[in-house]
Design a protein around this nucleic acid. Structure first.
Length: 888
RNA sequence: GGGUCGUUAGCUCAGUUGGUCAGAGCGUCUGGUUUACACCCAGAAGGUCGGGGGUUCGAGCCCCUCACGACCCACCA
């Protein structure tokens, strides 16, 4: 870092050739050293603007979508800061959960085996490993504690590189307030919240069929499931009535035949009336099952009569529960058929089942189909279809139903009573201000569609442990109804290491002793507490008071059903409050071919590479042009335009400041004394800028950074290309207006430039700060957002339309030379400009500047009929002699 | 099957309560080395606003309908 970087106010001269190169590093260093974005804890809630920033998953690389969303949020925060708010803008890392486990496995070539003892000297076989998933067979088994240590090591590494990118991007985050979802503070917070939920009856355990991923061997919550279209086939399979006649059912899961507990048809289906209340016998396995009636059975679907298995799908679960059927599980937690099926009694049936035991679901299906084909119980050829099948979003095998004991948290999924929890959560969604507003329907849609409470337990290793033990009875059986909890003061705990009060380690797993809950909390169960984690709910109540509920939650629309919803659930249960006032929803980044940006592409164009190539200001501009909620094409063209804008700000500022100083504003409100702004064109410019301020302010008040930029940017380009060009002769003092005219132009330039820098500051953070440092004190980012009133006063009632009239006239004058294909330097000996009445007055007021711009020697202004401004009676002079080109 | 969003110049997109709203930038073309900027400047060409109905004196803008695209949801026998 250079000396000037640490002392920005020392740099007063304007560089000869301003450049964007190196600005990111320079200003990040200054801001960091000055703690420019640090939250001031000496404050009250009404002075604070607090942000519940998404904690990025610290497992892998940042992609361009992060840069996009975080830039947009930063623009809103920077505006609020300029409005005088004390911004609480922390950033956390979601380093908890399965993605981290998977990355650690691949990065270090290990896998967790909880049965192994801790090895304090363990060194991983590889480091920096491959990005491709290494084969499980090559991974070295390590203890749970070793594994967790490696996860922690890796996330620390990843977080460092993330912070680097975010700093380069110019996020005005207060890095003093960063948090991790896996550290002790977060574990304690998460466990405390869980224990309070338990106390309040909002968390409960239940033994029930749940969706299960056989690869990861964990239960999976509804929010983590997705449908994928898969090939399947209807198999017509013959059951036998007591009289020996057949009943044909259709199924896509013939392998579940041994798990069949009943057949079911619609109560009014005439075809099956005589079957209800009787039993039929399954093929191959010879199990007698009842035939039941239930309204959920559809007469027009398949054969109109279905087999109920435990469990093939969620309808099976409903039938099983409502018809009080037995449980006959055949699929184990590893996705293979269980060794025993005791309800099958016949020797033939047992022999048939023995062929399936140990097979995967896929292989078992093949085998069953072969067997029913041989036995003649398959009616006709299977009919191929494709249908949606539930998958864990990170998994690659279909989810299976497995009956297990799991923890749940109420989320309204089982309480659709009037005024119940579901209604209350929907009302919370309406209470929230959504940007854009239509995103609320995604939330409502999701809450209305919930089919059960939130399953929060996961059978994994790296995460927040459930802070509970269970009593072990005198008979040595675990009594899950006797939950032993720790003191809140002792949190965080790991029940597999810590011992509950009143017990000793020797009693672990012993009759009369205790056992630990082996599971961890769903990662969302911790990250849903991000306002509480960042705001210090469990550690700093004073801080929490000042920042909660937060003002803003920025996030992507893909995690409305997960992060946004679960955060509302937790705040509703914990604080009986909405966690924030506003939600700003950003869109996705799409490939140029309109598909969601693929991983492989995202890796090719790394964020840091883009920031280097286009400058952070250029990339931020691209993000700033995209509206909230709208999926946006990955478009380097926009980044180039942003880069040009940043460069233009440097160059135009250098030029505008080069005419010489204007007297200071005695009132100190503007960059120069408004009293010397006497020229009508200068006043009109300030009037126009006042309108721009008002529009940009209105937009930003609605958190619409894109609209604000869209208003400011064209004004700035017109300011450069028309206004500066028009007044530059006058500003130099080469005009009949003399010194007063020059002073007016210089003052207007200074006033306008200073306002423009502040208007651009939330988006173009580096170039504006650079220019600010040339001639103003402090940082542009802690200046007040501009207000229009002083500019309107300076404009003295001058009509802003004058600027447009003169710009129009400039175009027609320039066109004369473009059409003649001569240099714009060519003098015009004489020209008559024809303009409508109103514009004519404007042109007369600015005629000196106009003749200077067009190098017009004799300008005549006349009133015309139409709306357009045009020229006639043109007499062009000789083009200037070309300078001989230096042929070095 | 239900829901949400979108369909405006070759491309990326504005167009906020229906009345200069047919726009911007990029790209293209034609010109210009103008000591702030060639990472520049000037000028020009380009669209019956997805299709079809309707409401209105008047419709990208409101209503209906269809098509296409994207996403979310749904009990997958």
């Amino acid at each position: 870092m250079t000396d000037t970087a640490s002392r920005p106010d020392a740099q007063t001269s304007i560089p000869d050739r301003p450049s964007l190169e190196g600005l990111e590093e320079k200003w990040d260093g200054v801001w960091s050293a000055q703690q420019l974005y640090a939250f001031d804890e000496n404050t009250t809630r009404d002075q604070v603007f607090s942000v519940d920033t998404p904690p990025p998953t610290a497992s892998g690389s940042l992609h361009i979508g992060h840069v996009f969303g975080y830039s947009q949020a930063d623009m809103i925060v920077r505006y609020q800061r300029m409005r005088g708010k004390n911004c609480f803008y922390p950033l956390g890392w979601d380093d908890n959960g399965l993605p981290t486990e998977r990355r650690a496995q691949n990065y270090y070539g290990v896998r967790c085996d909880p049965s192994l003892p801790y090895d304090p000297d363990f060194t991983p076989p590889i480091e920096g490993g491959s990005n491709k998933s290494s084969k499980a067979a090559n991974q070295i088994p390590v203890s749970r504690r070793n594994f967790i240590e490696l996860c922690e090591q890796l996330t620390t590494l990843d977080e460092k590189s993330f912070e680097e990118v975010f700093r380069t991007l110019g996020l005005s985050v207060d890095w003093n307030h960063s948090y991790q979802t896996i550290n002790a503070h977060s574990r304690a917070t998460s466990q405390r919240a869980f224990l309070e939920n338990l106390e309040a009856g909002q968390a409960y355990q239940s033994e029930a069929p749940t969706m299960w991923d056989v690869t990861y061997r964990t239960a999976v919550a509804q929010a983590e499931q997705e449908d994928r279209e898969r090939d399947a086939a209807y198999h017509r399979i013959r059951f036998t009535r007591p009289d020996g006649s057949p009943v044909i059912i259709e199924t896509t899961r013939p392998e579940l035949l041994p798990a069949c507990v009943a057949l079911v048809a619609h109560p009014e289906d005439e075809r099956y009336q005589d079957l209800f209340g009787t039993t039929v016998t399954s093929p191959l396995f010879g199990v007698e099952v009842p035939v039941k009636a239930h309204p959920l059975a559809q007469a027009d679907k398949g054969a109109g009569i279905a087999m109920i298995c435990t469990f093939g799908d969620s309808t099976d679960v409903i039938w099983w529960r409502e018809l009080e059927l037995p449980t006959r599980s055949v699929v184990g937690r590893d996705g293979r058929f269980l060794p025993e099926a005791p309800w099958i009694t016949s020797p033939e049936g047992q022999a048939a089942y023995a062929e399936l035991a140990g097979l995967t679901v896929f292989s078992a299906q093949k085998r069953v189909v072969e067997m029913v084909t041989e036995s003649g119980d398959l009616d006709g050829e299977p009919k191929k279809i494709t249908h949606p099948v539930k998958f864990y979003e990170n998994g690659d095998k279909p989810l299976e139903y497995v009956t297990s004991r799991q923890w749940y948290l109420t989320n309204g999924g089982r309480d659709s009573s009037e005024g119940g929890l579901r209604d209350a959560l929907i009302a919370r969604g309406s209470e929230l201000t959504w940007h854009p507003a239509y995103m609320e329907s995604r939330y409502r849609n999701w809450v209305e569609g919930l089919s059960g409470d939130w399953l929060i337990s996961r059978q994994r290793f790296y995460g927040v442990p459930f802070p509970v033990w269970y009593a072990v009875g005198a008979d040595g059986e675990t009594d899950y109804d006797t939950v032993i909890t720790p003191d809140v003061a002792d949190l965080p705990i790991d029940p597999t290491i810590d011992v509950p009060k009143g017990f000793t380690e020797e009693q672990r797993g012993q009759a009369g002793g205790f056992v630990a809950d082996p599971d961890i909390l769903d990662t969302w169960a911790t990250s849903s507490l991000s306002p509480q984690l960042a705001g210090g709910w469990n550690s700093d109540p004073e801080l929490f008071e000042k920042v909660y509920p937060m003002d803003l939650r920025p996030q992507g629309h893909d995690i409305i059903r997960t992060w946004l919803f679960s955060t509302i659930v937790r705040s509703h249960l914990q604080q009986d409050a909405l966690p924030w006032k506003h939600a700003s929803i950003n869109g996705w980044i799409l490939d140029p071919d309109r598909k969601k940006m693929s991983k492989s592409k995202g890796n090719v164009v790394t964020p840091i590479g883009l920031l280097q190539q286009h400058g952070s200001d250029g990339v931020r501009y691209w993000a700033g042009r995209a509206r909230q909620g709208v999926d946006t094409a990955f478009d380097e063209g926009q980044m180039k335009i942003g880069r040009r804008l940043a460069i233009k700000i440097l160059n135009a500022s250098k030029f505008a400041l080069g005419f010489g100083e204007a007297p200071a504003d005695p009132a100190g409100r503007l960059a120069a004394d408004p009293a010397v702004v006497t020229d009508p064109l200068d006043r009109a410019l300030l009037a126009q800028l006042a309108d721009v301020i008002d529009q940009a302010t209105t937009a930003f008040e609605d958190m619409d950074y894109a609209r604000a930029l869209e208003v400011t940017e064209p004004f700035f380009w017109a300011f450069c290309d028309d206004y500066i060009e028009l007044v530059k002769e006058r500003a130099h003092g080469n005009s009949p207006a003399g010194e007063a005219g020059a002073a007016s132009a210089r003052a207007a330039l200074a006033i306008a430039l200073e306002v423009l820098l502040r208007l651009f500051a939330p988006v173009v953070v580096f170039a504006t700060e650079e220019v600010w440092s040339w001639w103003r004190g402090g940082s542009v980012h802690t200046q007040a957002w501009p207000v229009s009133a002083p500019l309107r006063e300076a404009a003295q009632g001058q009509d802003a339309a004058l600027v447009d009239s003169v710009a129009q006239a400039a175009i027609v004058v320039r066109r004369i030379k473009s059409d003649a294909k001569v240099s714009q330097k060519t003098p015009i000996l004489a020209v008559t400009v024809v303009a409508p009445e109103a514009a004519l007055a404007h042109l007369e007021a600015a005629s000196a500047d106009l003749t200077a711009l067009g190098r017009i020697e004799k300008l005549e202004l006349v009133t015309g009929e139409g709306e357009e401004i045009s020229t006639r009676d043109v007499e062009l002079g000789e083009p200037p002699v070309k300078q001989p080109r230096d042929k070095g």
